[in-house]
Simulated scan of single mutants.
Amino acid sequence: MPASAATPRLEPFRLRGANFNLLVLRLLDPRTEVIVPAIADQFRRAPGFLRFAPLVIGLDDLQAAPQDIDFAGLAAELRRIEITPIGTIGGTPELRAAAQGAGLPPLRAAGGKDEDVPLAPPPPAPPAPAAAEAPAAPPLPPGSTRPTMVIDHAVRAGQRIWAQGADLIINGTVNPGAEVIADGNLHVYGNLRGRAIAGGADNTEARVFALNFDPELVSIAGYYAVREGLADAPIGKAVQVRLIGENMRFDRLG
């Protein structure tokens, strides 16, 4: 039974990016070979400040075309110097789409002002012929189900698993430094200690389930909380995470 059903409680918190230890790296140059050495120099000056810091990449100042930016290479190089990129804010729809393809989903701070332009919707389907009026959303074929990706092993630090257009089931531990992403629901039948992202395609109905909930970051449809913002969540317990409006809610399972 969810904890909320047994003990009514006030809203545990409202997410705002400024309230957490979350840095925004505003890219002024699109070249990874320029960005990373400059960050590494800052790292050497203040290693305790940046080591394993969750980092959001700001795209508003970039003028480059998406194909001129190696988002995957940038993310890999940042992780190599022990900095953890978790997503992006701002920028053009094309830049955000390119970053998401490299495993850096667009984020927005819950409960704050909508400063970032949302991803552009897909182009509308061509109109049907006048003689045939097709339904806007045809029913699924009988017996069809949502696709699911199943991983039967632990996810190690530095690994990223993305279930595109599907739910994701992890039968094992998600270790610190690992990242698991599902466009649908995310189930972790083990310890969740890395980064967990559900609803990767702006699916606000997606949920995260974990038998042992202790993540570095949890996100649903771009709304996110980092470890320091989970003081009221049942850490170390079996938990279900879902969105209620723009608020992230954590309920115990069982």
Rank of each mutant, 00 (worst) to 15 (best):
L140R: 13
T88L: 05
V241A: 04
A46F: 07
D114W: 12
L95A: 08
L192F: 13
I89C: 13
A120D: 14
L23H: 14
L22C: 15
P234S: 07
F13R: 06
P147V: 02
D183Y: 03
G90L: 02
G17Y: 06
P12T: 04
A109Q: 11
L27A: 15
M149W: 05
A3N: 12
G17H: 09
I220V: 13
A125Q: 15
P12D: 05
V239F: 11
F20N: 12
A221T: 14
E216H: 05
L27N: 10
I161L: 14
E133W: 03
G222T: 09
P127K: 07
R31I: 04
A102P: 12
Y189K: 14
P142R: 08
A98F: 06
G112I: 06
T32S: 07
V239N: 03
I235Y: 03
D70L: 13
L119F: 04
P47V: 03
D202F: 10
I181Q: 04
P142Q: 06
I170W: 01
V24K: 15
Q164F: 00
F213R: 11
P12H: 04
D183R: 04
G91I: 09
G87W: 08
L104T: 11
R14P: 05
L15T: 07
L243S: 07
G158N: 08
A233E: 06
H153T: 13
A132L: 08
A221C: 15
N19W: 09
I170T: 02
P105N: 03
I83T: 12
V188T: 07
A76G: 12
R249I: 15
P85E: 04
Q63D: 15
I89K: 06
V188R: 08
T88P: 04
E11L: 14
L140T: 07
V155S: 03
L15A: 03
F250E: 00
T173S: 05
N19H: 14
P106R: 07
G236A: 05
Q240P: 05
A231I: 15
L25E: 08
A120N: 09
L22E: 06
T148S: 00
P37M: 11
L23V: 13
Q240A: 14
E228K: 06
L15H: 03
G177H: 00
A75T: 15
A231P: 01
D251W: 05
D68A: 15
K237M: 14
A210D: 09
E216F: 05
P2A: 04
F49T: 09
R108T: 13
G199I: 09
L95M: 12
F13Q: 00
P234L: 00
L10M: 15
L230P: 11
Y224D: 08
A201H: 03
L23W: 11
P126S: 02
N247C: 02
A38E: 09
I81V: 13
E33N: 09
M149S: 10
D214K: 12
I181G: 01
G91Y: 02
L230A: 13
L253R: 08
A201I: 01
G158K: 07
A65H: 06
A198D: 01
A128M: 11
P126K: 04
P106C: 08
E179G: 00
F209W: 10
M149Q: 12
A18E: 14
L119H: 06
I170K: 05
A120E: 12
G48S: 11
R26V: 09
D29S: 10
